[in-house]
Amino acid sequence: MRIDKHPVLEEFEKGEVVEFTFDGKNMFGYEGEPIVAALQASGVKVHRHTTKTGEPRGVFCAIGRCTDCVMVVNGKPNVRTCVTPLEKGMQIETQYGIGTKE
């Protein structure tokens, strides 16, 4: 899902390739890019399930406004993945309601 070469922007400046985990699975992304970019590039679209009905939610506004894309990051819930930079070794988990799956 990454854009290799862009007709106007040419190439995207990215940090170093770092490993992280998504629900325990190892994945790779670029350090400093928003978590959502790394997940989307790996084909992950469902970020959380709602509290009452368990409906899936994903990225919606991508600029930190709507909070639909929040996940559990390093054990902390409700982290807006569209504006939180990816770090090496981050543990990213699908959020269920307001926490991780029991």
Binding site: M1, I3, H6, L9, A37, A41, K45, G58, C61, I63
Partner: peptide
Amino acid sequence: PGVMGAGAAQTMMNLHGVK
């Protein structure tokens, strides 16, 4: 997931280089 603002799509592709 997959329904998003047009601006969100623009952010993903033009800022982060992800479709």
